[in-house]
């Protein structure tokens, strides 16, 4: 690996021997996977390769049949999705899952839920601590919306334009102060300009906020331009791993994507 010098960089996420069987079908088979700190790592592969299954196991929607996940040094394999989020895992969804009838700001505030402490009694009695916290949370939410470049703040999330909904989902995920952000096809359905703007945003996540990002993406231009490392899955197995350049030249990857016949 030309990249880092061995173990000097800590890993945010370590996956070891992750296997998921749906009945007799091995959707993901014995995959090892690391995400170093402040890295953008992409997971690619043809349709049905097991990317989303792997992703859902990281965020806790599925439990792996075998294997374990370690997030910032703690084993999270048995944790529920909300516990993982509290541990510092944020995610977006392939088919946008915003809280449609909440405003953009409230969506971000809902994402901030675990970082706020206001008790029920405090809210009912309008205690000054809770009011201050709410005010600060609101300011922070607006700052996050500025960061992702969203203007419509008080409209219902479902009435926002498509591209803005994608950005809002990222802002909402950022609200819980994650260490690792999982983005599931963030540019799906976007036009080239929107895609370019979103790619730039993902880059800024690392530079300005020090996040690690795990990206599932079909748009190869996006993957190749911002990833530090790319992992390729096919039929549930890891067939290649390395820098974008390395992966692009790997014969097994070309084979998986284009088939065996190589015209020279």
């Amino acid at each position: 690996m030309p990249e880092e010098n061995g173990g000097s960089v800590a890993n945010v996420l370590e996956a070891r021997g992750i296997t998921k069987a749906f009945g007799g079908l091995l959707a993901v088979n014995a995959v090892d996977f690391d995400i170093p700190e402040r890295a953008i790592v992409s997971l690619i592969g043809p349709n049905g390769a097991g990317k989303t299954t792997f992703f859902n196991m990281v965020s806790g929607l599925y439990t792996p049949t075998r294997g374990r996940f370690v997030l910032t040094g703690r084993d999270i394999t048995k944790m529920k999705p909300h516990q993982r989020a509290q541990m510092g895992l944020g995610r977006t969804f392939q088919n946008i899952r915003l809280f449609g009838t909440m405003s953009a700001v409230d969506n971000v505030l809902a994402g901030m839920h675990v970082r706020l402490k206001g008790s029920i009694l405090g809210a009912v009695l309008k205690m000054p601590g809770v009011r201050r916290e709410e005010k600060e949370a609101r300011e922070k939410a607006h700052a996050l919306l500025d960061f992702v470049g969203l203007r419509g703040r008080e409209t219902f999330a479902k009435n926002l334009p498509y591209g803005d909904q994608r950005r809002l989902e990222i802002a909402r995920a950022l609200a819980s102060d994650p260490k690792l952000l999982l983005l599931d096809e963030p540019t799906a359905g976007m036009n080239p300009q929107e895609t370019a703007r979103l790619t730039e945003l993902i880059g800024r996540l690392r530079q300005e906020r020090g996040l690690s990002v795990l990206l599932i993406e079909h748009e190869m231009r996006v993957v190749m331009s911002i990833s530090d490392r790319v992992t390729v899955l096919d039929h549930g197995e890891k067939i290649s791993e390395g820098t974008p350049t390395e992966v692009r030249q790997d014969e097994r990857v070309i084979e998986a994507y284009l088939g065996t016949a190589r015209t020279g």
Binding site: K80, R97, M102
Partner: peptide
């Protein structure tokens, strides 16, 4: 309650339980 942190959590769980859990709720 409606305007509190808990009120927001209620709406989010009502709207999409999976997404709410992914946010740590």
């Amino acid at each position: 309650l409606r305007d509190s942190r808990l009120g927001r959590a209620w709406v989010s769980v009502r709207e999409d339980e999976t997404a709410a859990a992914a946010m740590g709720i």
